[in-house]
Design a binder for these strands. Structure first.
Lengths: 193, 193
DNA sequence: TTGTTTTATTAAACCTGTTTAAGTTTTTTG
DNA sequence: CAAAAAACTTAAACAGGTTTAATAAAACAA
């Protein structure tokens, strides 16, 4: 159940929060049940909400000039996903957000976030930690993109997140790592010898 | 003066903060005066502090396998710079942080940050906003890295931050954008015709 | 369970950006 | 101000990864 999942998650960041306060906090969220391939956020539409994944897997992507799909982020259980620049500016999203698997997510609108922070200031600390951690990860991601060849990126990722490599289609993984599915086939072929 | 600069900056994020509270907050920081090319944070040394630039320009970089320098981030007035992953884990920094120009920065150690947040919880909001904004920018950066060719990246950057292109050496800019100084020369040559 | 759609593989031709190495210009320093 | 160091330019050979197009395998729906 998504309320219980959110409670356990928030508790990891704010250990002394009570069940009853999270009950209150939960009312600011809206639960969404998504079918596989269902789209939550369309490109060029207003970005209203941040999405928290309770179950399943989502990804954000845009369509490149040549018509192919570029995945920018994945989110699995207990991760947030959003076009944060568009969210902050309440502007049109550059990205589409789609369920990779059948998923359950909690949606938090801009207005709800503002109200939530006003009425539960302890959540400032929660989000400070979430964004700090996310920014640190994004920084490392840029570092890896510069530091490693495409082949190294794949092996690095595959050894750190083996379950994840099983979980998503390879063409999405290739896209996320910044190369073509054809090249991923080649990498795998070469690695067998 | 760095105290006044910090006050004005924090006020942009927390409008109702008083001068006297910022006086208190300021005591958690240490002012550093850096000569051009001086190194604040060495690679493979413990990352103890986040750095806030009051005046000047810093960059973070690492040395690639082929011996050349890879700049990951720049910070000018009112920006923070740090290897956040190393800072959070109090582990060894992957990055060197160096002054590009003679600079004045405020250093905030991990212990000081913790104490600051404990005694001035209003700063949770400040840092939540800072990290949210930084993460949004980092996300867009990854998007641009995927979306644009090297040449497009340069023109995009040059048109958005013309003063900055003047301010830093071109080989650092090329490195930041993910290509070689030789290729930047070529881009500029081709654009003249 | 069969037909249809989606995902993965293979290989050759190609292209964007790198490497190397030399020369030129600009900036810094004594 | 002169000398040295740092930054920038040029061009040719090269490499990492893409594109295209065709085939094969797997997943899905009727």
């Amino acid at each position: 159940m998504s309320k219980e999942f959110l409670f356990k998650h928030i508790q990891k960041f704010i250990p002394f929060i009570s069940q009853s306060e999270v009950e209150q906090i939960y009312t600011y969220f809206t639960e969404l049940n998504l079918k596989k391939k269902e789209i939550v956020q369309h490109e060029e539409e207003l970005c209203r909400s941040m999405l928290f994944v309770c179950k399943g897997c989502l990804h954000s992507y845009y369509i490149k000039d040549n018509g192919s799909l570029q995945t920018l982020d994945f989110a699995i259980e207990s991760w947030w996903i959003c076009d944060y620049m568009a969210f902050e500016n309440s502007s049109l999203s550059d990205l589409t957000i789609q369920a990779v698997e059948t998923s359950i997510v909690l949606s938090l609108s801009r207005e709800s976030l503002d109200a939530l922070l006003q009425h539960h200031p302890v959540m400032e600390q929660y989000f400070r930690r979430i964004f700090q951690r996310s920014y640190a990860a994004a920084q490392k991601r840029v570092q890896f993109l510069y530091q490693y060849s495409r082949e190294e990126l794949y092996f690095h990722f595959a050894s750190h997140y083996p379950e994840f490599v099983q979980r998503v289609p390879q063409y999405l993984l290739a896209s996320y790592l910044g190369f073509t599915p054809e090249y991923l086939s080649e990498i795998k072929k070469n690695s067998l010898r």
